[in-house]
Write a protein that binds this DNA or RNA. Structure first.
Length: 681
DNA sequence: AAGTCGTCGCTTTTT
DNA sequence: GCGACGACTT
């Protein structure tokens, strides 16, 4: 293992006076960084110490506090930008936070890491991949990819007879990974008399093996593998523990065990023996060590509110925030209770719902903005009736001068958009569904992306098999199987087996087709090799741009051509979608000069629904309550509030025309979407 | 190998 | 109510 000095770590910080974190650093911030803050917000910005918990009720200005706190740390020279790691919930929130910090400081603050858990982990893993035997161009599998693999495994093992479905296996694997239980840990606890457990272990094993062989990680791996990396290689961990002196985590109530463990690893002190090793490798630690010769753990700030925990289904553990003071003894707690976004009527209604939660610490949100307009309740006779009400109300708001883009409609599940969309189309209301079936989930886009993935990561068998016969080139399942078994028998990768297609004894047509595809992918990969100068600099100089590679692949595979000449009328739209993807890669190339294909693929893998939201769109936004978290609108509609609306599975379909639907809207005041836990019974 | 028809089961919520 | 998948046909 080699330790390198982080390339984007400015060296100046070592010389700076007071660079070491110091709890008694004196008056913290310039006045402009605390101006206009209430006393509690100011306290949260100015507090200096190892651990700070900011309990921030909905709409209490926590983003403001976080950005001011970061700016204050930098402004007071208590941290260099590169020593800051801030974790946000979406990439969009990260970009906004960076802009706001830079606006406060009046200068660019490059080197700050502000990102989601997943983005930060990918960045670390790509850099340290070789330590854990992974290619730095590893693929990130989304849930559809996971399901495809699990489907194949379940079929091969006949596991469906025991009731396993791809979805059930995926959920179970995800749960285990979020609890940091890897296959071998699970294997040790398996009850060998239970055929279900034995079968699941086999599924888990195969799944793990296939991802490893393909050099691929799923979403949950991104977090857990980073934790394993840090635990197995203290010297690697020390690089990051040394670097990040201030770690700030937003939405802490929605962290799961793996994310919690990651934070614990990152805030761990570096022991003197490891400090000595860092020194030997030329990693500078001067000014960071304390009297005992160790580097103290980073200071940690978490922001959250247990009333706003909505991700328990993906392993979020509310104990992380409830037990923060026990985990980090001596932690300071600041409560933000003044709400700046809603009127009292809205707060009271929200409170009435939340107060039904058990185990709840009472919080009293208040506002100085007065009662405001009352919330409107409406009970419809059907989903369509409800949608019509919403549409009429939106029209009324619009006539009263509210812009469409300041209006949002929320629901629990994506399936609930249907009635709304029908009525909105009929009423000619401009709207946009945020999330749901995304652009990148369309089959033709996944095909084009699979070409890029296959070029970036030649080990990725899933990607290659997806495009093997797309567009149709006469390679059917039989041919596919014979390539796979040839690879297996000769210890080759699928890709290598394709290159050696001559020896497979297939028909001339199939052989030519396979070799043609292998050649296309190899040539595209060759375009990505940087020039000698680029290699010498360690940059991407001389490598083809993403859009050039994609254009080459589309041309060589006839992907768009095939769609254009197809008889299926829908294929014209599909061709346009692929062209749209090409346009997006051009935008990417322009906005990210020097970025690689892997950077593009990573970005696409990690976009959240809310990241796609275009603030200037001029349309009403439709989205799930989960997607809405952290967003803000002038008027919002909550639809489908009736009991049991989303659990049709266990109930017969609703008798026609008698579905009770409830919508409620708030307007003429700024309402902030902030969903709350609603545990039934 | 590709096209057509009929059956099953599925959806909370997401990085 | 829709889409994915398998069996069947050409």
């Amino acid at each position: 293992m080699t330790l390198i000095l982080d390339p984007d770590d400015p060296t100046g910080w070592r010389e700076a006076p007071g660079a070491a974190p110091d709890a008694h650093a004196g008056p913290a911030a310039s006045a402009h960084l605390t101006a206009g803050l209430n006393p509690q917000q100011r306290e949260a910005v100015e507090y200096r110490g190892p651990a700070l918990l900011i309990v921030a009720g909905a709409g209490s200005g926590k983003t403001r506090v976080l950005t001011h706190r970061i700016a204050s740390l930098i402004d007071a020279r208590e941290a260099w930008p590169s020593q800051i790691l801030a974790i946000t919930f979406t990439n969009k929130a990260a970009a906004e936070m960076r802009e706001r910090v830079e606006a406060l400081l009046g200068e660019a603050a490059g080197g700050m890491w502000i990102s989601t858990f997943h983005s930060a982990c990918v960045r670390i893993l790509r850099r340290e991949a070789e330590s854990i035997g992974l290619s730095s161009t590893f693929t990130i599998y989304d849930s559809a990819d996971q399901r495809t693999i699990l489907k194949r495994i379940i079929k091969e093992l006949d596991a469906d007879t025991l009731g396993f479905t791809p979805a059930s296996a995926q959920a179970k694997i995800s749960k285990l990974k979020n609890e940091l239980a890897d296959v071998e840990t699970y294997a040790r606890n398996v009850n060998s008399n239970d055929p279900n457990e034995v079968m699941f272990l086999e599924i888990f094993r195969q799944y793990t093996r296939r991802l490893r062989d393909a050099s691929a990680l799923d979403f949950d791996d991104l977090i857990s593998e980073t934790v394993y990396l840090f635990r197995a290689f203290p010297k690697v961990a020390a690089l990051y523990q040394r670097r990040f002196r201030h770690i700030l985590v937003d939405e802490y109530q929605d962290t799961n065990h793996a994310q919690y463990s990651l934070i614990r690893e990152l805030t761990r002190a570096v022991e003197p023996d490891v400090v000595a090793e860092l020194n030997e490798h030329g990693v500078l630690v001067r000014g960071l060590t304390d009297a005992s010769g160790s580097i103290p753990g980073a200071s940690l700030t978490v922001v959250g509110d247990s009333d706003q925990s909505i991700y328990a289904f993906r392993g979020a553990d509310i104990r992380n925030i409830v037990e923060f003071e026990r985990d980090f003894p001596g932690a300071k707690v600041v409560l933000l209770e003044q709400n700046y976004r809603s009127t009292q009527n809205i707060l009271s209604a929200a409170n009435a719902v939340i107060s039904n939660n058990f185990d709840r610490k009472d919080k009293k949100l208040w506002t100085a903005d007065g009662d405001g307009e009352k919330i409107t309740g409406y009970t419809g006779y059907s989903a369509h009736d409800e949608a019509q009400f919403v549409a009429d109300e939106i029209e009324a708001l619009h006539r009263a001068g509210v812009a469409y883009r300041d209006i949002a409609v929320f629901y629990r599940t994506n399936a609930q958009t249907r009635a709304l969309e029908e009525i909105f189309v009929r009423s000619a209301l401009p709207y946009r569904v945020v999330g749901g079936t995304k652009f990148y989930e369309r089959a033709e886009i996944k095909d084009a992306m699979a070409y890029l993935v296959a070029v970036a990561n030649p080990l990725d068998e899933l990607a290659i098999r997806r495009i093997l016969n797309t567009p149709k080139r006469g390679i059917g399942p039989a041919t596919e199987t014979s390539i796979a078994s040839f690879a297996e028998a000769n210890d080759l990768t699928f890709r290598q087996a394709m290159r050696a297609a001559d020896g497979l004894g297939l028909g001339p047509k199939a052989t030519t087709a396979i070799q043609g595809l292998a050649k296309l992918l190899d040539e595209a990969a060759a375009m990505l090799v940087p020039s000698e100068q680029g290699i010498a600099e360690g940059t991407n100089a001389g490598a083809a741009k993403v859009s050039d590679v994609l254009a080459f692949l589309i041309e060589g595979s006839k992907l768009v051509e095939t769609l254009r000449t197809s008889r299926d009328p829908q294929d014209e739209t599909r061709a346009e979608n692929v062209e749209e993807l090409l346009a997006q890669t051009k935008d990417f190339d322009r906005e990210n000069p020097g970025a690689s294909l892997v950077d593009f693929l990573t970005q696409v893998s990690l976009v959240a629904a809310a990241d796609e939201l275009d603030d200037a769109s001029g349309t009403v936004s439709l989205m799930t309550l989960h997607t809405a978290k952290g967003l803000e609108y002038h008027a919002v509609f909550l639809t489908g509030l009736e009991e049991d609306c989303c659990r049709t599975r266990c109930r017969p379909p609703n008798p026609a025309g008698r579905l009770r639907s409830a919508a409620c809207s708030t307007s003429a005041s700024r309402a902030r979407a902030s969903a709350s836990t609603c545990r039934s019974r």
